[in-house]
Amino acid sequence: MTLLQTLTDSARNLAVRSPWIYRINAGSCNGCDVECATTALIPRYDVERLGCQYCGSPRHADIVLITGPLTAHIKDDVLRVFAEIPDPKVTVAVGVCPISGGIFRESYAVHAQVDQYLPVDVNVPGCPPRPQAIIEGVAQAIAIWRQRI
């Protein structure tokens, strides 16, 4: 292995310990958003120990959590915000709505599944999923992100 490769590998190992999380609410009922907020914000689960940080700006994000069935009203905005997230990024769909539309499926107002429009890497099913499931989803996203960064 050359020196350059070794350096790149060690830089990747360091970089992967700093995943910043950004949430997109694609018309969710807020159930999953409450779980996401609970997961990160309460001391019990404290994702900051994994280096995670919630960021307010899509430009700072590494891991994107998408909740909701992608309603017709919000679709264009979600796609626009998603395009503003710099590469390399990983997408986690939280809840059953991004997978199938959940209780809103077959509604005229939703565009689920989300993966028709965005490259979803990890699905975390549940209505809403438990905080532990969301953390596991983020952990899997970090593993995928390691391949990309």
Partner: peptide
């Protein structure tokens, strides 16, 4: 809380984005 070297990890990460 995060490891003491967390700001350093953040910098390395940002350099690769």
């Amino acid at each position: 809380g995060p490891p003491l070297a967390q700001p350093f990890f953040d910098l390395v990460k940002l350099a690769r984005k």
